[in-house]
Design a protein around this nucleic acid. Structure first.
Lengths: 263, 263
DNA sequence: TCTCTGCGGTTTATTATTATCAACATCGGT
DNA sequence: ACCGATGTTGATAATAATAAACCGCAGAGA
């Protein structure tokens, strides 16, 4: 938990789209790590290209090394690009914003977005970390994950992102059971007000969830017909996606998919 | 060099396109770090999503976290995408493979490739790390870098990649002086047999090199006319690229560009 | 089938490294 | 000259690396 490397790596998570450059003192304050230590860690990470210091300012930002690593991974295991294609298809067909996420360690990382071209649409940023308990994507991933993974996720403090967020682990576990039966998860303004999300899992070669694809729409626009259409499209795209990345859905999910009738 | 974090991060560099999955013992052997230590480091990095263990096999590979970090950086500072556009333009105009690289720590990382559609062409992998002394991109970056950076780069052991590779720091420094005058660098089979490269620097907002764009072609195909055409196109694209990423070429480079006459 | 070998993973006590804390030097902007 | 920021240094306390074992497992070969 408090290993040196873990502390250093956790510094990377403070960089986001809304705050792409951060100074030493700021990082030290947020991470709770000593300033001198943070400085040394930053120096090491700069040396390895994970971070870089703008010679101009005295701020740090993510370095070109992360671009390189991402390229290496994407060349060897093209997941992001395959996701993007499915997301574009989804957003075009549903007319709402679609996004994809992958399990990264114990978190869920958004790695692809395709916004609808409507004037009113849900807008979200790629690279964001999604909470497991308050998003449809998180729930659908948990539903098909191993118990240890679920325990660890629900063991952490569950933040109430909105007034509708469920933070009781027991209720969440009950919902996970439902998700296992339907194959998809819905999040009615549990992560963000006015946003209704529907998500479906994507699997790895070993049958464990690799991530999720989801459609997010303004809550007031949700109808039964739109839900059916979305879920149907998600099943289709999830199927293609699993094929594209070599994922093998477990029997439980395949059963749920077979149970779904797009009537 | 011997910091814990540095050792952990250096493990990431063993993953490449040609070897995207590596086991624990293999990593321990190559890095020279103890197996138990490597195991702990890998566990931490898996926990943070930089790596992931395929539940199936017992191998490690780069995780989804690197995709997320790359997206965050690319959203805040779109460099890779801007590069790609220039590279596509270059390869289309010259008819040879173009590639772009960025300084990542003390190394030069390939972050974009656009192969020509010729049957015979130079093929190279994105995500590769380029040597500074034996590639045109490396030389052009060094030529406009600060002396400390050059000293550090030339202080490391210089590998002779081919029979033509120059490994004498003094000769290299002399060549850097020439590059400063011309604004571009040429590598005639100094990094790879039969490959002739021409590179041009791209700059950061503070006037230091951010990376380079380069054209690589089969050495036997090189002619004076092709060289002129390539250099001319590189100057044009470098100019656009600097504008696109907000780079400010130093006076020395602007003078070299003005000196060039595409006659 | 049985053994052998190499691998991933874990443990132990010891050794070496590193974080920490506080203090100070330094730079830039107001 | 002020202030908050980045760096940097010192001694002490906490942490992690090391080395050499060990287990369980899988595949190879006899």
């Amino acid at each position: 938990m408090s290993s040196t490397v873990a502390k250093a790596l956790s510094l990377l998570n403070y960089f986001s789209e809304s705050e792409p450059e951060i100074g030493l003192s700021e990082l030290a304050r947020r991470s709770g790590v000593d300033k001198a230590t943070v400085h040394r860690m930053l120096a090491v990470m700069c040396d390895h290209g994970l971070l870089e210091k703008r010679g101009d300012a005295r701020l740090y930002r993510l370095g070109a090394g992360v671009l390189r690593l991402a390229r290496v991974r994407e060349t060897a295991f093209p997941v992001s690009s395959v996701f993007q294609h499915s997301l574009d298809t989804l957003s075009a067909e549903i007319g709402e914003t679609a996004h994809g996420s992958l399990i990264a360690g114990r978190a869920l990382a958004t790695i692809g977005v395709s916004e609808s071209n409507r004037g009113s649409r849900v807008s979200l940023v790629a690279g964001e970390i999604l909470p497991m308990h308050s998003t449809a994507s998180g729930m659908v991933v948990l539903a098909f994950s191993r118990p240890e993974f679920v325990d660890r996720a629900l063991g952490e403090p569950l933040v109430a992102k909105t007034s509708r967020t469920v933070t009781d682990p027991n209720i969440i576990r009950a919902r996970l059971q439902e998700v296992r039966l339907t194959g998809y998860a819905e999040a009615d303004q549990t992560n963000e007000d006015d946003v209704y999300g529907i998500a479906m899992p994507v699997f790895d070669t070993d049958g464990t969830p690799a991530g999720a694809i989801a459609v997010a729409m303004p809550a007031h626009r949700m109808t039964n017909e739109l839900r059916r259409h979305t879920i149907s499209a998600l099943f289709a795209e999830a199927d293609k996606l699993n094929f594209g990345i070599g994922g093998r859905p477990p029997a439980e999910f395949r059963a749920a998919a077979a149970r779904f009738s797009p009537t």
